[in-house]
Nucleic acid binder design. Structure first.
Lengths: 251, 251
DNA sequence: CCCATTCCTAAACGGCGGGTCAGAAACTGC
DNA sequence: GCAGTTTCTGACCCGCCGTTTAGGAATGGG
């Protein structure tokens, strides 16, 4: 009995709201513009949501849920990998190593998946980064990033345990570099109409972070570098000056 | 003749405005709160500034000017270094190299200076990042970051020319990793009451970026590695899955 | 002490947009 | 059709600031 509700009103509202939030931020997005874009009147908005903020909160929740799901899947897959194939040893890094290739393939796929989630939510991410101050969502993006960064720290610790990465760098510093690159990637995505080539991005990023900037000819010969000695390691560049790390003391 | 203006009214307004912007963003900062914090009436604000936005614009201008000044100084110092001491060769990377130590010292000092500027303007940076959407300052921070990133690209190219960093990585990818770490550093600074140890941060960051994450024992022996050979270099991680870069195509 | 001048205050204005609600519209079953 | 019910509309109310402005306060010169 009675007039049935428009079945796609809600999803139309969500889509229009995302566009308005993306364009104007949470505060400046006008409810009337959102409803007008769906051919509805202002009052109709309140049939579906308490307020602008309530709608946006749902979007954020959805984003967080997707990230959490992905993280869980990721951890499980990685655990399976190592429990099936054990820790890495020196010869696993030899040219043509099948085991290394498998790990890389797994991780690249996972990274690409993460970028896909971010791509799908890029408008929400944009608003969280640029337009949330003074709203209830102020700082939410940094909570998310901090949590991701912490996950990277944990992941690094595990990879150290399995011999995949060197143990003499602090996991916190590694995580910051990795997350930093991700944040910039995220932000570049956000202002781009076409989806970039995620695999290429991930691969290139991993080469840089994996190998470092020092000229290869300057690297110490490959020996079982034990426990990094006392001497200052050294450093590198920045803005104007990337640099390489050298001065590695003899083991 | 006539009543003299309060000499510190303007600076008091700027200080109070920064605090309000920092706290509430550009849109939600109330002029009345700003003036009240200085013991002035709302109307007094307009004796000094056209509008809220005009005041904030001055802060941004100031920030950009400082960054530009620093950049110029930096370039000049680096040019002087190389024109006086020439390009790097293999033996400059040997343990105890005086020339390398000098370059590192120069660059670390410059990096710390950059962090000092950001520290001084951290409230403005915070607003630009988090609270500018829907205002005239929307995207300004990313313009600044993009420009800095481009400067890093140029710097990388020069350092390649002078043999300080390897030439087989794209400068763009390197710049993204470096800037990413800087952005996260900036953002961490922004929400911190006490000034962190900049030198320590820079040093640690440079070790990670300079050397990469691959286990040292897995690195190819140090030979005049010509044009990166065919074999996989190795790698490293990421979020959940550091990885390494491999699969490098034969040159 | 008075006046011209400049500074500053506080009240008022005005627009904008979130939220409300009385009633019109749409639909169903009879 | 008609009654009953639920959905939608759009005019309206209202508070919140940014901005204006009329006039009061402070000051210095004469």
């Amino acid at each position: 009995m009675a007039r049935p509700a428009d079945p796609n009103a809600k999803s139309a509202l969500v889509a229009a709201a995302r566009a308005q939030f993306r364009e104007h931020g949470i505060q400046r997005a006008r409810i009337e513009d959102i409803t007008a874009a769906c051919g509805l009147s202002k009052g109709a908005f309140y049939l579906h949501y308490e307020s602008k903020e309530a709608l946006f909160a749902e979007l954020v929740k959805d984003f967080e849920r997707r990230m959490d799901d992905m993280f869980e899947r990721r951890t499980a897959e990685e655990d399976a990998f190592f429990s099936k194939r054990g820790a890495f040893r020196s010869n696993d890094f030899a040219p043509g190593s099948e085991r290394l290739a498998a790990l890389l393939e797994l991780q690249t796929r996972q990274d690409v998946e993460a970028l896909e989630v971010m791509w799908a939510m890029r408008d929400v991410i944009h608003v969280l980064i640029n337009g949330s101050q003074g709203t209830a969502f102020d700082g939410v993006i940094w909570h998310i990033i901090d949590r991701e960064e912490h996950r990277v720290v944990v992941a690094c610790d595990r990879l150290k345990k399995f011999g995949v990465i060197r143990t003499d760098l602090s996991s916190e510093a590694i995580a910051m570099v990795l997350m930093g690159a991700w944040v910039l990637t995220m932000r570049k995505m956000v202002s781009r109409p076409e989806k970039p080539d995620f695999t290429a991005i991930i691969t290139e990023l991993n080469v840089v972070v994996g190998e470092g900037l020092s000229p290869l000819s300057a690297r110490p010969a490959a020996k079982p570098a034990r426990k990094s000695s006392s001497a200052p390691r050294v450093p590198v560049a920045r803005t104007r000056n990337p640099r390489s790390a050298r001065m590695r003391k003899a083991p």
